[in-house]
Amino acid sequence: MSETPDNLKYTSDHEWLRLEDDGTVSLGVTDHAQQALGDLVFVELPESGSQFTAGDACAVVESVKAASDVYCPLSGRVAAVNERLQDEPELVNASPYDDGWLVRVEPDEPAALEELMGAEAYGQFLAESED
């Protein structure tokens, strides 16, 4: 079973989002996603400052046998990227919701966050997709 913390928002592409105190939104891949991918060997991150439209691919997570795009469900500007992942992609496996965050976005419309799934809905989504 994978973890789905209560305080986060989720997407059907298995990304999580968290509104931070400074108004930015952190984004990463869920525990379920990192388990499905297996040991990550590389994370490709965007340039800080680049602009994304909701639904754009903003990062790539790569294991030995697969590479997956990570989609940004919000429009906005990249405020920061997790530089540690350049040398330690395994952080995404070890700590998907904390040390393994990917990017921090300044959203154009913070309210859009509320339209995403909560932990319970995502848990349900996972259960259904396993059937």
Binding site: V41, E62, V64, K65, A66, A67, D69
Partner: peptide
């Protein structure tokens, strides 16, 4: 580094 290649990454 096979994730760069067509048999895994297909159209990308």
């Amino acid at each position: 580094l096979q994730a760069r290649e067509q048999h895994i990454r297909r159209s990308k």
